[in-house]
Simulated assay, not measured.
Amino acid sequence: MILSVANKYEIQIGTISQANFDWLSSKNYAGWVLFADENTAELCLPRIEEFLPEDTPVIVVPEGELNKNLETCQDMWEDLFAAGVGRRWCAICLGGGVLEDMAGFVSSTYKRGIDFLQIPTTLLSMVDSSVGGKLGIDFNQVKNSIGVFNDPIAVWIDPVFLETLPLREIRSGYGEIIKHGLIADRDQWDKIKTITDLSTVDWETIIPSSVNIKREIVLEDPFEKGLRKALNFGHTIGHAIESYWLETDLRLFHGEAVAAGMIMESWLSTQLEALSSDELREITDYCLSMYGHQSIPEDSLPELLALMQQDKKNEDHRVNFTLLSAAGKARINATAEEELIVEAIRYYNGLAHA
Rank of each mutant, 00 (worst) to 15 (best):
C73P: 04
W189P: 09
V60A: 01
V342R: 12
H235A: 12
L99D: 03
Y348L: 08
R168C: 12
E71V: 11
L94P: 00
T335P: 11
W267G: 01
M126S: 07
E176N: 08
G104V: 06
T200H: 12
H353M: 14
S295T: 15
L324N: 09
S125C: 08
S145G: 00
K68Y: 03
C93E: 02
A91R: 00
E10R: 01
D138P: 00
S108H: 07
H317N: 15
P222L: 08
L219T: 10
T164G: 07
H317V: 00
P166I: 13
H235Y: 09
I13F: 06
Y291A: 08
F21N: 04
A334G: 12
G292T: 06
S277W: 04
S172G: 04
W156P: 05
I13V: 07
D249L: 03
D55C: 02
I192G: 05
D79V: 03
L280T: 09
R318W: 08
G175K: 00
T200L: 14
A41T: 00
L305W: 07
S199R: 14
S17G: 10
G31K: 06
V342C: 12
M1H: 11
L227C: 00
I237M: 14
P302F: 10
S172T: 07
S17N: 10
D128A: 02
L304Q: 11
L70A: 13
I157M: 04
E303Q: 15
E216S: 08
V258P: 01
A257N: 12
A354F: 10
E343Q: 15
D299R: 13
S108N: 07
G173N: 05
S210G: 05
S130L: 05
R47Y: 01
A154M: 06
L123K: 01
L307Y: 11
D138C: 01
L117M: 05
E256M: 04
L340V: 11
M76I: 10
L252S: 10
S125T: 00
A306L: 15
